[in-house]
């Protein structure tokens, strides 16, 4: 007689809890400028002088407050990149390319999408969103004051 497979009872559970995060003073100003003027602002550390993007109200390296807003261009260079082909719960629909972008006038890298090119086949896509590629922000028409007001950064050479 075949041995009966042991049964383990399963108990289902689900977390779906809404949160409301405040962006605080510094990021709120940054988002307002994006929403109203399609303008990207970095912030300068008064001590080490570097321009941080995304902007924060203090420099963690020097441990001093930052106050000096500096406009940076919405154009820059891809410093590193990956292209995701998997779909995860609650996350963007693949494929999408995640890049760290050094915008002109900034001293740190911004995490955002590179898009506006066909990413469906990685063998071709990897040559379209390479490290060193120059990219420019593609803004939404209807902006809400969020990072996604920029849909993605598009390679400037792409049609």
């Amino acid at each position: 007689m075949a041995e009966k497979k042991e049964e383990f009872i399963k108990v289902k559970a689900n977390w779906n809890i809404p949160f409301t995060h405040s962006a605080g003073k510094c990021a709120s100003h940054f988002f307002q400028e994006m929403r109203e003027k399609k303008r990207i602002l970095g912030i300068r550390c008064p001590k080490c002088q570097r321009v941080m993007l995304p902007p924060r109200s203090f420099c963690e390296r020097c441990f001093v407050a930052t106050t000096d807003w500096v406009p940076v261009k919405d154009e820059g260079v891809v410093e590193s990149v990956s292209i995701n082909y998997m779909e995860y719960t609650g996350m963007p629909k693949p494929p999408y390319a995640i890049a760290f972008i050094r915008l002109d006038g900034s001293d740190s890298n911004l995490m955002h999408f590179v898009g506006g090119v066909d990413l469906s086949d990685w063998k071709k896509a990897k040559d379209l969103v390479k490290i060193g590629t120059r990219v420019k922000a593609v803004w939404k028409e209807e902006r809400e004051g969020r990072m996604t007001d920029i849909m993605y950064f598009k390679p400037v050479s792409a049609k």
Partner: peptide, 12 residues
């Protein structure tokens, strides 16, 4: 605030 929308996980 700044980075979660970019869809990064540990694999990234």
């Amino acid at each position: 605030i700044y980075e979660r929308d970019a869809g990064a996980g540990a694999i990234s």
